Structures are given as C-alpha cells and as structure tokens.
Computed example of a mutant assay.
Amino acid sequence: MKNIIKKVLSAALAASLALSLAACSGGNNAAGSVSSSGSAGSASQTGDGKEYKVGIVKFMDHASLDQIESKVQQELDAKSAELGVNFNYADYTFNGQGDSTTLNQIAAQLVDDGVDVVVPIATSAAQVMQSVVTEKGIPIIFAAVSDPVTAKLVNSMDAPGGNITGVSDALNTDMIFDMMVAVNPDIQKVGLLYSKSEDSSKKPIEEAKAYLDAHNIAYVEKTGTNTDEVSSAVDSLIGEKVEAIFTPTDNTVMSAELAIFEKLNDAKIPHYTGADSFALNGAFFGYGVDYDDLGAKTADMVADLLVNGADPATTPVVVLAHETATINTETCQAIGLDLDDVKAAFATLGIGVEEITTAKSFE
C-alpha cells in the first residue's frame, strides 16, 4: 500500500510542478521522487543494525543545496558504519522544487512513512516541515537556515525550545561589504538583489542597508521571485549604473545565477554573494560557510539525536565560522579586475582567497 501511495504522490507532484520545473536550475531529481544520489547506510557487522528512517527534504535544486544534501548523505553513511546502525535516507529523500504545495505534500508523506527525523535543507523547507511534522512528534534537524529566530523556527540560538534545531549558515554581511569597499574604496552606488519571499534574505538585506547608510553609499533594491524576474531585475540594476551588486544566501537568485552572470560580466559589475556556489555558477565573489562542513555537522546532529537521545529543545543551533572568500577567476578577468589586487585587498582584512571557475555543480 505504501508503494502505491508513493507512486500516486510522485505523479501528483510531477503534474503540479510542470510549470515550476523550468524555473529551477539543473538537478536530476523529479519533484517528490527519491534522490538518485546515495543509498541507505549499511550497518556495521559489530552493531545491532537498528534502522532509523531519515527524511531529507531539499528546498530546490541548485549547487549549494545539492552540495549540502550530498554531504549529509555521505556523513550518514559514515555514521552508519561507525555506530553499527542503519540511517536509511534513500527511501525518504525528496526535492521540493521550490514549491510550497509540493513541500506540504512531502511533509504529509514523511509523516505517513513514520520517519524518525526530518532534515529540511534551507529556510523555506524547514518552515513547511515544522508546520506539519512537529505536530506528529517528529523532530527536525535543519540545515542552512540563515536566521532561524526571525524565521520563527526556534526561540533562541542557544535554547531552541521546541522539537527542532540544526545548523545555520548565518551571514557576516558587514565583512562582505568591507571586502567590497577594500576592492573599490570609492564606490558610490550598490545594487541589492534578492527575493522578498525568502526569510533568509531579510536580515542580511537590513544589515546591508545599515552598512551602506553608515558609509554614505547609495543603494538600489531590485527583487525577483523566479529566474525571469531576477534577470529583469539585473537589467534594471545595470540601467541604474550600480558599481557592484550584493545578494545574500538567497535560493531564488542562486538558482538564476547561471542565467545572469554573463550580463553582469558584460556590464563589468562584480556580484558579491553569500555562498561559494554563486561563484561556481559565475558570480565574481562568494563568502560564507563551508557547505561540506555544514552538511557533515547536520548529519552528526542527526546521529546524536537518534542514537544518543539528544534533546532538540536544549541543543543549541550551530553557527559555522566564515573563513574564505571564493573568487571566480574567469569572471574576475571578464569584469576587468586584477586577481592579485583583489587578493591584496582582502589580505588587509585577514581574508584568504579560494579560486574557482564557472561550472554548474561541485564535483
């Protein structure tokens, strides 16, 4: 009966997302289908082989979230062998394709499946999962939620207070602008590009405005809720003659980056962003947490919850440190910046540089 339900759900999700799939970047997973990457962890011969059902829900396809999903799965496999249990995620991994209706259907399916924990990747996925699965007593360990307090997922970072905790990719917005100013001390106008529909963007955009106001730098805001709207927003920012553009950890813009970076290159406008995956997809610059580390830490928290009985209500949200700026060397050259000069500017702030070239996804 369960297999029949899954088939019906997959068909329903595929039909409901026929239009939205075109707006998502890349990805091989059909909405609502089991992920093709990874497999259920194999139990150690020395353990009791107890199976735990781990639901993994990725908000949409793009390089950052794909990277996190893959690392969570790899670490769960490692923990399965280490602890002598079976973290079965392969039967319970879903892709929400950026659609709230689909995410709600997935949440209902995971409840029906009786999973032991849900791992939503990104703020929007976490919010939908919280609204459905926590009512059934299923705990949540989220990944890549930039501001879980503002998103109303937890009461505080130190004491979440509910059946939910996880790992945050909170952004050091001021440092990004310090680096922007270090590269161009005379900058006069900055574009702010983001989606109003994403809670993860609200706080860093407020921080960006405060920074720019304090430094007497003008700014222009443009938003979009899909790739076409983001592309139009970029056209407007180019027309406004901004000298640089800032985007936080915004999934909507991230999914559109491959469609907009060449426009920005032609206009000689550097795009400063909140994750290295933006730079992988053509943006000039990315700065934020290491998503491999984030995925591994998320999986470790899942293991601690399920095997050791850790209480989400008293388990602090983990915030990883920011260490490295990622520069797309092809884009750096295309917009007329000298890589050595950029490195020297960042060095004055104690920031190292990791070099990358444009690709669709991480290897």
Rank of each mutant, 00 (worst) to 15 (best):
V220N: 05
G98R: 05
N155F: 10
G84W: 08
I138Y: 14
Q73F: 10
N155M: 08
A279C: 02
L306F: 02
S35A: 15
Q45H: 09
D147L: 04
D116I: 03
A313N: 00
E243I: 08
K268L: 07
K202Q: 08
D99L: 06
K152C: 04
S146C: 04
E355W: 09
D340N: 13
E82M: 12
S35C: 12
M60K: 01
I176H: 01
C24R: 15
F246L: 04
M301N: 13
F278W: 00
D91W: 05
A90C: 03
S20I: 14
S201R: 13
E229W: 03
L339F: 06
Q97C: 15
G96F: 01
Q97G: 10
G114C: 05
I356S: 02
V145I: 04
S35W: 14
T173W: 01
K50W: 05
L306Q: 00
N265L: 09
N328H: 05
I335S: 00
V342D: 04
S42K: 15
A334L: 04
F285D: 03
D178M: 03
S231Q: 09
K6F: 11
T326I: 09
T329W: 00
T150P: 00
G191C: 09
L171R: 03
P312E: 01
D178F: 09
F87C: 12
P270C: 06
E354C: 01
E363P: 10
G350C: 10
A63N: 07
N28H: 07
S100Q: 12
D61W: 07
I164P: 09
E206Q: 10
Y194Q: 03
K136N: 14
A256D: 00
T315A: 14
Q45K: 14
A108P: 00
G41M: 11
K152T: 08
T348Q: 14
V167C: 03
A143F: 02
T123R: 07
A218M: 11
F59E: 08
A182M: 07
K263P: 07
L349W: 11
L339K: 07
V190T: 02
D178T: 06
V289I: 13
I68G: 12
S236V: 11
S100M: 10
G137K: 13
A12D: 13
V117M: 08
D112T: 15
A256S: 05
P185A: 01
V234S: 03
F59Y: 15
M129W: 03
S197P: 07
V72K: 07
A325H: 04
E51I: 15
A81G: 15
N184A: 10
K71W: 07
G282H: 04
I205E: 00
L264V: 02
E206D: 12
T93N: 12
L264D: 00
V318R: 04
